[in-house]
Design a protein around this nucleic acid. Structure first.
Lengths: 120, 120
DNA sequence: CTCTGTGCAAAAGATTTGCAAGGTG
DNA sequence: CACCTTGCAAATCTTTTGCACAGAG
């Protein structure tokens, strides 16, 4: 793994929230000012295909990147806030129901967070 | 609902597969040759926010549009094939676990289809 | 007559690519 | 020396927007 790759993985692992490529790029520039956005994208693509990083596709905003430990996502339909939750792994159950090997799955749950529920 | 809106909804409802905006545009042009891609996008956005159509975001290819009946998706990581499956509704279970009202959820299961499994 | 959807062209946003150069082994 | 990542700029692809007009109510 390259220096830039390591740095980007580290940035993602250390971050509390789910960063966009742009945000990762900003952080990376603090460390290595000559880095360029394309390099961040290249590395993100590698990290995703190696399975070290997870890409989250959202409606109406750029992709987010997340450390790849098994968990699910709670998405507020009001403000777009994205939160990690740790539900039990459904893979076994899904495999039984489907009768085929499951590589992985994405479970994104849409809800309204407290603030947005109050407003509505 | 407008004429174009109805037509586009009809195209999506009648289609077996999960079409891109471009493909919907092609079909729409057969019916109404002066229609323009932007109009298709506008209508798709309306249909999605009215909840009549579901938008599926994929990695590395344009969004797909799907009739909005509760179901889940099987995505082959080899060839990208997208299939509908009908698992039981998990909303109740999720609400119990999360202790909050669930608006909806997306469950996308990654696997390898028969052909891709043979190749691998 | 007014209002909203439409066609059109152009813009915007996100991501990818081609290429030359640089660093590492 | 050979290779692969990088920086850079430009391209690409998808989707959105501004505007003038047409058609429906």
């Amino acid at each position: 793994m390259t220096k830039n790759g390591k740095m980007i993985l580290e940035i993602i692992r250390e971050s509390e929230d789910h960063m966009t490529a742009e945000q990762i790029f900003m952080k990376a520039k603090e460390i290595s000012p000559r880095i360029v956005l394309a390099t961040v994208y290249n590395n993100l693509n590698s990290l995703v295909s190696e399975g070290l990083v997870r890409r989250i596709k959202l409606d109406g905003s750029p992709d987010r990147y997340d450390r790849n430990t098994r968990h699910d996502h709670l998405i507020c339909d009001g403000c777009g806030k994205l939160t990690d939750i740790h539900l039990e792994d459904l893979s076994g159950e899904l495999e039984r129901e489907l009768g085929t090997r499951v590589v992985s799955y994405d479970l994104n749950i849409h809800y309204l967070c407290d603030e947005c529920r109050k407003k509505a």
